[in-house]
Amino acid sequence: MVLTDQEVNYFINTIRNTSSYDFSEYSEKSLKRRLQKILIDNNMDLVALINKLKTNKDFLEKIVKDITVNTTELFRDPQIWQTLRYRILPKFSGNRNINIWHAGCSTGQEVYSMMILLNEMGMLDKAKIFASDLNTDALEAAKKGIYKYRFNIGYLDNFDKVIKENPYNYDEYNDVSYDKYFKIDKVTDTIAINDFLKKKPIFRQHDLVQGGNLYFAKFDLILCRNVIIYFKYSLQNKVFKLFHDHLYTNGYLVLGMHETMLGEITSRFEKKGQAYRKK
């Protein structure tokens, strides 16, 4: 099933006219692909889909969830976590509080990775963890903190690289047991995050397109990884502006491995790898 650009626009306009969601500034290719997948999964043509969207609010909410992409892993991209551990988080170790916002936290693996790291650094108690996503199903999964173990994916390798090893000092090795943070059950193929971690984050639904600060707080660190790749350049810049407004001076924004800031907004940050320090 191949959709034309007009058909995708028809979908975008329907969503915009019947709800508070707006996909008009989402990247074209991936939005089209998501929509095509939705039509196939629901065994519907576009006209039938649109009609149901107009009359059925629950269906609309479900389709909005299906549009969003929810890929995430524990300690995805260990280099970024090593940078956080040895280059960024130490800057806040003397602070009384540290506010962290995971914008687009999906099912929460990044949130728990951060808390594990903070705990190893002795900073968890002073941290406030905020985590938001558009997709409320993803947020519910994040609160549960039970994930497919999928031993072949290499989560534990990533854990070892970030938590046990020090890339700046090969002699250092911290023998931290996995049990301290999660229980692995190979029979049910699950990793279950320990309760003391699950209690802490404040999970809230939030749509970056609509902007606004749902926590009425400023942040020392904002992580937004592999979210803005689904946005057009214009929306990316709005989101960067939002993050800039809600960071403290000298606070950091961390993006995904292959995301970058372009244009005028770059002058308001100092770039260090995937981390951007607010000037």
């Binding site: 990247s27 290719k29 692909r33 992409v69 592999n226 995301e259």
Partner: peptide, 14 residues
């Protein structure tokens, strides 16, 4: 992906 404006687009879709 390649967008029509000849820019790269990346995705972590399944």
């Amino acid at each position: 992906y390649v967008e029509l404006n000849k820019r790269i687009a990346l995705s972590t879709e399944e």
